[in-house]
Amino acid sequence: MSRVARRTRWALLLGPFVSVAILWEGTARFELIDPNFFPPPSTVLSLAMDLYLHGDFLTHLLASLRRITFAGLLGGTGGIALGTLMGRSPRVKAVTDPHLSILYPLPKIALLPIMFSLFGVTEMARILTMALAVLLLVSINTMGAVQQIEDSHIEAAMDNGAGRIDLYREVILPGTLPQIASGLSLGFGVAVVLLVIIEMVAADAGLGYVIWTSWQQFKIPQLYVALFTINVLGVVFVHGPEEIGEWLTPWQHG
């Protein structure tokens, strides 16, 4: 995709935010909807400024950011490594595949208590729960991509004198990059969901925590500030890997 087209796509991504904001502002101003539950965006926006500049929102944002970043790094690198191994070695695949097949449909949030019993009620346990979700999606995607690498490309590399490491660097990694990126994107999608749930039920900081406590204390405008922030976070982490993937694979387009 060309640079212009990409920029347009990002601009269009603002469309939903703008259109919802206009509609909402109008209906809230004219009290077509209950402003106690649906405060107009202008109110939310000025509150957001206030909460980020003077309140503790930055702390909550950073707590969430840290969790999802570490989970992505751990799950991503682990998933790429495991997926590559599984794709290259039928023996590794034979052993690990059943494990993944059973873990895959299990909602990872159900493992949170287990993680807490293993690691205590710690950040480690929260991050690992999310990382597991990323790892599963990335490894499955990577494995598929590695298996789809053309034999002739492997043969051509070896015939030209490529060693083991060259083979990974020159053939397998570039050949699987697009699917690794989409695996990361899917993984982050699940990780954001987990993040919010974990923070709602078992954390005392983070955007999910803010959403839930705001609801309980009936601080509706504050709830929307957190919701909007989570939305932006989700967009960045879900679409980011795809964008980076496209940027890293110029041979796929143009």
Partner: peptide, 22 residues
Amino acid sequence: FQEKGIFPWKTVIENVAFGLKM
């Protein structure tokens, strides 16, 4: 090779120079 001997992720010159690089 008959087909698919060159790497789609490398430019023409990178493909031609591949053996030398190795």
